[in-house]
Amino acid sequence: MTKKPKAASVKSKSKINAAERMLNLLALLSVRSQPLTLKQIRAELLNQYSEDGDAARAQFERDKSDLRNLGIPIDMITLGGAQAGETAYRVNRNNYELTDMGFTDDELQALQIAAATVRLGAQEGEQALWKLGAERVNPKLGPRASIGFADPHLGTILHAIGKRAPLTFLYKGETRSVDTYGMLARKGFWYLVGFDHLRKAQRVFRVDRIESSVSVGKAKSYDMPKNVDIVKSVPTERQMMAAGDYEHSTAQVRVHASLARIGARDFGAAAAVREEADGAVVFEIPCSNGYAFRLWLFAMMDKAEVVGPPDVRELVVRWLDEIAERA
């Protein structure tokens, strides 16, 4: 004990790093076949817990709860005999270690490529990859999709669906209780489809619009209906434009020749009513949902004009006047 390397080890003697202590605790509890009391743990991990009993207890409780949060359950056993009433602690490695998945190299590589081509924008994807023994790779070629998986509710919701446990959360200012049938990721958003007990009907919720934490009810509380098509349950933009209560269901819109193909792309060639001399095309476009219709129409600025029916034309004029008068 002549030359002491300064910093870490000297400091750790008096005040051991909490991370180091946590690792030592986990190692100790994992290797001992017998459960250990806090007193025994403190004796084994000499000087790592505070000498003060209460402080040591607080440190230990914190370590224990941190480990639990990492997915490492610590069993508590109440002892009998000479130590009657005392609590002892034990960790069963089988409760937190992954069993060997037996992936082939090809399978691991396929998972790696899948992970590289699909960005989740969340830690979970990478964490899982590493735990499975794979690694992040960066392929040079090929399309890469991004589906957000960062929403903190996702894990809870998906887990609850697996258990058929109803969810309760605040949505548009109301408390909703939902038997969830499935999830859909579309256009950067996650949707939840299920039976809404408040409305007594099947409803769709956008997960990022949930205004509270999500609480999970009792497992096996409902049956999964066989005939629900999750993908079709969530309306597309096109369906949204047709779903509304505006008195006119369609409008005729003249689209400038340069953008005519966009109209055909959005609503199909069948939506084209006629082509005019200058190459402009008149389309029959759903407008029941005035809001969605406005978004679509104004995206083309002055290259699209409603030609009928007169009511819809007047409505567009009112929209424009409203904006024009604001300045």
């Binding site: 992954l98 899948a114 994807g125 990859l129 735990k131 894990g155 990721a185």
Partner: peptide
């Protein structure tokens, strides 16, 4: 600590989401 930790439920779903999306990509593994 030579064996990996079990996957959390969120991690498991993340892998499944990843694989399902990857399977839809042209030129997917």
């Amino acid at each position: 600590f030579s064996r990996p930790l079990q996957l959390t439920s969120a991690e498991m779903y993340a892998v499944v989401a990843m694989v399902r999306a990857a399977q839809k990509l042209p030129g997917a593994p």
